[in-house]
């Protein structure tokens, strides 16, 4: 292998650094902004159930375009749908005491995702900016499906080489400096994209300014250790299909205790037992000696 001289190395390093700074600036989000988790605030009270987010999602991700005419919508809203391999986001209609409520569901992008912890090949990744993305090196083991508290990752059962599919909060669009497609398409501002910290502030401001309209709870602020997708609602979350029994513990934390215990059980435990045996034997000898005396 050819040796690189000190001078040459410094030259390359300098050019790479300058190039990087230039290119980083040309992108939409500056480097400093990229340090924080981004997220999505879903204000359920503002959603009118037009399904434009579903169409925009399909357009952006190259999925079959759904028909969102009003006659079709009526038919679609008759059943409660789940996200699928061809629909990363869906809107469901709920009849509640406060009238009709439309709830848009997608991947919650947990702060400490169970799917990322479970993935064997690191196909699922938690990005620095909050998105949980999936790569093409997925081996189709479906461990992420089991580990997800919201049941979001979906498996392409009908394909020969199946992979996992789910919302990645438009990570490619984000890298170009754009906001997610669903947020751009929303006509009522029910979806807001921004930094997670600012979104929580905004959600609290909305609750404070209209305490009659909202229930004073942000779904996703603390659920499973916090999620990047946050929900505001006018009706209790149990009534609109949300699981409120998840707890505030991040899912990967449930396994860390066990995993840390493995070395102790296999190495330290036998050692401790051996030591105990030695100590007992020593005591026996001592007593026998005492008896002899």
């Amino acid at each position: 292998m050819k040796k690189i001289s000190r001078r040459e190395f410094l030259k390359y390093l300098g050019s790479v650094l300058t190039l990087e700074t230039i290119f980083m600036k040309s992108e939409g989000w500056s480097k400093e902004e990229k340090k924080e988790f981004y997220g999505l605030l879903v204000d359920i009270t503002k959603c009118i159930g037009c399904r434009r987010c579903e169409r925009a999602c399909a357009e952006a991700n190259g999925l079959p375009i759904p028909d969102i005419s009003e006659e079709k919508n009526k038919e679609v809203f008759k059943t409660l749908r789940d996200t699928s391999t061809t629909q990363y986001t869906v809107i469901n209609k709920y009849e509640t005491e406060k009238g009709v409520v439309y709830v848009s569901r997608r991947c919650m992008h947990c702060n400490q995702p169970g799917c990322v912890a479970a993935c064997l090949v690191k196909a699922m990744r938690k990005r620095e900016t909050g998105q949980v993305t999936w790569d093409l090196n997925c081996i189709g083991c479906r461990l992420c499906m089991i580990s997800c508290p919201f049941g979001i990752p979906k498996f392409e059962y009908e394909k020969a080489i199946p992979k996992i599919q789910k919302c990645d909060l438009c990570f490619d669009r984000f890298n170009k400096g754009l906001i997610p497609a669903c947020v751009e398409a929303c006509p009522t501002g029910a979806l807001t994209f921004g930094k997670r910290r600012e979104l929580i502030e905004e959600a609290k401001r909305r609750i404070k300014s209209d305490p009659d309209k909202y229930i004073p709870y942000i779904y996703g602020e603390y659920e499973v250790g916090g999620t990047c997708v946050l929900y505001l609602s006018s009706v209790p979350f149990e009534q609109i299909g949300f699981n409120t029994q998840l707890g505030y513990e991040p899912y990967p934390k449930y396994t860390t205790g066990f995993l840390y215990a493995v070395p102790f059980i296999f190495i330290l435990w036998p050692l401790a037992m051996l030591g105990f045996r030695k100590a007992v034997e020593g005591g026996k000898k001592h007593r026998e000696e005492e008896k002899k005396e």
């Binding site: 605030l41 503002k46 906001i179 929303c186 006509p187 009522t188 501002g189 807001t192 994209f193 921004g194 600012e198 979104l199 905004e202 401001r205």
Partner: peptide, 11 residues
């Protein structure tokens, strides 16, 4: 991009 401002279309 300010989450607290309402966009024209939303307004």
């Amino acid at each position: 991009e300010n989450p607290s401002s309402t966009k024209l279309i939303s307004a």
